[in-house]
Design a protein around this nucleic acid. Structure first.
Length: 283
DNA sequence: AAGAGACCCTGGATGC
DNA sequence: TGCATCCAGGGTCTCT
């Protein structure tokens, strides 16, 4: 499932293929893919606009358009974007297509159909609720500490809350908590300064590694070119229940927290404040 | 504030 | 072999 590193991988791959291209038409076979405006109106309005930049905010892709506006895409569970020759046959799950001015097209394939497309004047219409970018300088241990102290909930759903921190999904939440040796059900206001520092480092470490490895091909995700990412080989706990923890060898468990399957090591992520076996402290 | 549950979807896994 | 059923998973919404 595309999270921040997977979306970043799409952005980097698409950028050279679409920047400077003009969209000449849009085709859609699944109207619910288009959040706003109505599909017919989007097709009419987007034709003739040029893509000037491709960026990411949280898990959203942003295509800046000239003379105005932005195309915003969220891939949700199974979305995939690629730019291919128009002559290439379309996959049956390709529901939205932007035809470009050089005989290529930007294809939005989405098996689960949860993805969404928006054409807006100002992306803030969609993005205003998002929390900070976890890899930006304004995300610091201090800013994280302030957010955590302010509420009383389990840390795992906190990490998945896009209004707190933008871009973390189920894989990277579990991995960051394992890195930081924090139990997923720990209350946000119970974390010690040392734990918060480790969590901050863990979030940045796993997301950065995810980007370097071009995403985790664990369920359906593949890179824009159809190849698998490499992050699935670096994963310590996610979907590894029953297997040994790479840090301490204990058996990884799966529980449900906030309605999401959650994977953790019961030995190096104990559910007690500060209770970390000293032989298992990470290097 | 925050948790629980429903909803949207399909393919893969499991059950019979 | 084949059919029915369950489940994951991000985000949004409603209810408590």
């Amino acid at each position: 499932m595309p999270e921040l590193p997977e979306v970043e991988t799409f952005v980097r791959a698409l950028r050279p293929a679409v920047v400077g291209r003009t969209i000449i038409a849009m085709h859609n076979t699944w109207p619910r893919h288009i959040d706003r405006p109505l599909p017919g109106e989007l097709a009419e309005r987007i034709a003739g606009r040029r893509i000037d930049a491709v960026n990411r905010r949280g898990k959203f892709l942003l295509f800046n358009l000239t003379p105005s506006g932005a195309l915003v895409i969220h891939l949700r569970m199974s979305g995939h974007l690629s730019v291919v020759e128009r002559s290439e046959p379309r996959d049956k799950h390709t529901h939205t297509v932007f035809i470009l001015d050089n005989d290529t097209e930007l294809r939005f394939r989405d098996t689960r159909k949860f993805g969404r497309v928006y054409l807006v004047d100002d992306p803030q219409e969609i993005l205003y609720k998002l929390g900070p970018e976890p890899l930006s300088p304004d995300f610091t241990p201090e800013s994280l500490a302030a957010m955590l102290a302010d509420r009383k909930r389990a840390i795992k759903p906190f990490l998945l809350d896009q209004t707190m921190i933008a871009g973390i999904g189920n894989i990277y939440a579990d991995e960051a908590l394992h890195y930081a040796q924090i139990h997923p059900q720990r209350r946000t206001d119970s974390l010690t300064p040392a734990e918060i520092k480790r969590l901050h480092a863990g979030i940045q470490y796993v997301l950065d590694l995810g980007i370097k490895r071009e995403g985790a091909s664990i369920s359906t995700y593949v890179k824009p070119d159809g190849e698998m990412g490499d992050m699935q080989n670096e994963v310590a706990v996610f979907r590894r229940a029953g297997q040994p923890c790479p840090r301490c060898g204990a058996t990884i468990e799966r529980i449900v927290v906030g309605g999401r399957s959650t994977h953790f090591c019961p030995l190096c992520q104990p559910n007690k404040k500060g209770d970390i076996p000293k032989e298992n402290v990470s290097p």
